[in-house]
């Protein structure tokens, strides 16, 4: 995994784990790899992984079972909330950038739906 060295590594690891959960690589109720294995896979320090995991545990996205490891929550409400939050974060970036270009809300909707159509046509070719 390639990190952006200007952004705290633990934060990027959290984003990585969110993504693995959203795309079902880490499925609800299953155990995620052990701390040291994640450290080796992502080439970062064990402390950094621990920091990321402890925040995910605080967010109740992961459940820590003593002596057994860390498991993805089975609480669908939390998982749906996670998805919403992440989508919203991405939209927020796009919205801010387009607003800075003085694009109105109506235009924005139009541009987005045009873009989606165009993208789908291109991807089909």
């Amino acid at each position: 995994m390639k990190f952006d060295d200007k952004v705290p590594i633990y934060y990027q690891i959290k984003q990585y784990i969110y993504q693995e959960i959203l795309i079902n690589h880490f499925q609800p109720g299953t155990k995620i790899p052990p701390v040291r294995q994640l450290a080796i896979d992502l080439t970062v320090n064990v402390n950094t992984i621990q920091r990321a995991l402890s925040e995910l545990i605080d967010e109740e996205i992961l459940i820590s079972k003593r002596g057994k490891g860390n498991f993805v929550t089975t609480d669908l409400q939390i998982l749906n909330q996670l998805k919403e939050n992440i989508v919203e974060e991405k939209l927020e970036i796009m919205y801010t950038q387009l607003k800075n270009l003085q694009i109105s809300s109506d235009e924005m909707v139009q541009y987005l739906s045009d873009y989606i159509k165009k993208r789908e046509e291109n991807d089909h070719e």
């Binding site: 990190f3 060295d5 590594i9 080439t43 970062v44 320090n45 402390n47 950094t48």
Partner: peptide, 8 residues
């Protein structure tokens, strides 16, 4: 840069 990811 070699070790940046590794450091606390």
């Amino acid at each position: 840069a070699d070790i940046a990811n590794l450091l606390d």
